[in-house]
Design a protein around this nucleic acid. Structure first.
Lengths: 206, 206
DNA sequence: CACTTTTATGCAGTTACTGTAATTTTACTG
DNA sequence: CAGTAAAATTACAGTAACTGCATAAAAGTG
């Protein structure tokens, strides 16, 4: 590594074309709507072959949605599993939020995606589906936490873990909508706190 | 109308071909997997043109998933809005469950769909997406209920309604999984009750 | 400068799905 | 029962996303 900014011409070129395609796609989609843009149009605008497009992003929605939500880091998971408190749900939501926050660094791209997902039900659904796909892995983690906190390993513990994960998904989904719709001015952390408080209020008040 | 069992040759034939296509599709999908079956194959097996297939079901997943979850009846909605208790979440879940229960009468088809949805993540996602599409309408209903029960129409009431709907979605999703996976022997109503109790336990215990 | 590995492209093919116009089938009417 | 309107079915042509494969052009390496 000669200089921090480059890691070889190859990598730089790669990043450049990726970025070009991404920007072209988002810009076109913002103008004509997601369904109003063809992959061919994106390719023409970014001057690559269709095959190259699919080599980079795999699918049309892939270029709009961006990289999938990453699994939390091992360290974060470890911390979660051995945390002291009883607020498993809250901790899980925090865990997920942290993982997502370490994603897209680019402000502009992020905002474009946000707008597009918000106005395209199809994309919103896929985004939700992506989160759902993490569930299987999360259940195991939550289960570990429950066991670590001394809960008896009786029947029903798995169900509880599953429900916690599903609930966390709800909270995330709620926050996503809230955040995407731009109704709130709060920063992400506030939105999250409010959401959790709301859940408690609703379920306790019966 | 000459006889209660028929409503004209036209309608009977229609029902017949629809059923033929449906059975062919499910049978083929069970054997080769959802992705392993082409629309052409279904058409050949049920002896209709591809165009007819799409006239009937609109899409490949349409024939597997069956009719979408119906909105609750106006009467049921009315009852929900003016119900006395404070358990809005519980009542909402019951409302949705009732609407779903009045769906598919055919046992065999229902079971086939269940198996296929369970073993095909793609289909599971679409099924969840379908539920999500009801949300917009449900928020209005829940909001009406909150107002009817004397809640001040301050800012935040819409957010509360949204969260209640999202939570209900979670509970339904949890139950769906629980029910589809066949882990439980309980009837749907029991599954539902357990799920609600679980939610309360989790969110109260913090 | 050879030589290997990556990256980009062309091209042909598959699959889901749509619009349209023609053709067949059912229902109705005098 | 002939004649006709309405509905169902079909063929056909086309679009759009996506894949596999073979080949060409860079880029990295000794």
């Amino acid at each position: 590594m000669t200089h921090p900014t480059d890691a070889g011409l190859r990598a730089r070129k790669r990043a450049a074309t990726q970025s070009t395609i991404e920007r072209a796609a988002l810009s076109l989609a913002l103008e004509h709507g997601y369904d109003g843009v063809t992959v061919d149009a994106i390719c023409e605008a970014s001057m690559v072959s269709q095959r190259t497009f699919f080599n980079y992003f795999g699918s049309k929605e892939g270029v709009i949605l961006g990289p999938p939500p990453p699994m939390p880091t091992d360290a974060a998971v470890e911390a979660f599993v051995h945390a002291a408190g009883h607020d498993v749900l809250g901790d899980l939501v925090s865990l997920l939020a942290a993982a997502i926050a370490d994603g897209e660094p680019d402000r502009d791209l992020f905002r474009s995606r946000r707008v597009l997902i918000q106005r395209t039900p199809e994309l919103m659904n896929r985004e939700v589906a992506r989160m759902t796909e993490l569930q299987t892995g999360l259940v195991a983690i939550v289960l570990a936490r429950l066991r670590a906190s001394g809960r008896a390993d009786s029947s029903g513990l798995t169900e509880e873990a599953r429900m916690i994960v599903v609930l966390a998904g709800s909270v995330m989904r709620y926050c996503l909508e809230q955040y995407f719709s731009g109704t709130t001015t709060g920063n992400p952390r506030e939105v999250l706190e409010n959401a959790l408080a709301l859940v408690r209020r609703i379920t306790n008040g019966s």
